[in-house]
Design a protein around this nucleic acid. Structure first.
Lengths: 139, 139
DNA sequence: TATGCTATTGATACTTCTTGCAATAAGGAT
DNA sequence: ATCCTTATTGCAAGAAGTATCAATAGCATA
């Protein structure tokens, strides 16, 4: 049984359906322990779901992000990557060389509280992308 | 004289060149007091630089962002927008309806210091994008 | 287990953005 | 003022991502 099946109840609870395509995509995200582009997900997932199209992968990843199962992160240069929310960390990215550092959530917790209170937004629990210059690119 | 000319020295100092295309794009960003997509910038800037191509606008905006003159912000749904760094604020975006709220830098200042110290990164002074659910979409 | 509603998919066309390369032109040096 | 180096542009092809719509297939219900 695919390790994506654990998300079936969560999806049903919101009135949506589990499909072989979604299972395969969840399986890929679960198996690869890192963030991936939509195209990378597509290349892996199509092996288990032959008819799979890119459009479906893009739509599914967006769907998973909207439902809090996956999260989308912009890693510089406009690339959009996805990963399961289970990871629960943030990214600090060098805008010149693209180097990526993961940040724990703890330092951001109080900021989240403050902003949630002042704006009424419920902030996504799990992801922020910060940009800057890494030590090597600060010349 | 175009109001983009004030950036000439800054660009020369880094060994790059000022061109009519860059002047026009800077002028547009300066004149429109809000963030714009590359295509919106293109539509406006081509009026003063007839031969202008979309590719040049994309490259120029990326160039300005790399050099700290403009900043790129992802406002949900994958749209990338640009604005001059002078604005110096952050964005909180609803990942469902796309509603955007501007946030002052002050609440993030101490976070920036902490992260800078622990990672060695020099964080971009001016921009973070946070995602969440706005009050209306929290159903 | 069979039925019906509708969420989801695949196919296609389209929009948005990127890349490679030859031609052009900015601006420092003579 | 002219020359030279090379950053920058325009062009064109291509990659990445989105929208539309008819056909398919989950799954709730009976």
């Amino acid at each position: 049984m695919s390790c994506g099946a654990q998300y079936t109840d969560q999806i049903h609870a919101r009135g949506f359906r589990m499909t072989p395509q979604r299972l395969a995509i969840l399986h890929v995200l679960r198996h690869e322990d890192r963030h991936m582009t939509a195209l990378e997900v597509y290349e892996r997932a199509r092996k288990s779901v032959p008819g799979l199209t890119e459009a479906t992968v893009y739509r599914t990843l967006e769907f998973l992000a909207e439902n809090g199962i996956a999260l989308a992160a912009h890693v510089g240069n406009g690339k959009l990557v996805y990963e399961l929310t289970a990871h629960n960390h943030h990214h600090l990215i060098c805008r010149l060389c693209g180097r990526t550092v993961e940040i724990e959530h703890a330092p951001l917790a109080s900021l989240y509280e403050k902003l949630g209170a002042s704006t009424g937004f419920r902030l996504d629990s799990s992801h922020v992308t910060l940009f800057g210059l890494c030590p090597d690119c600060q010349t």
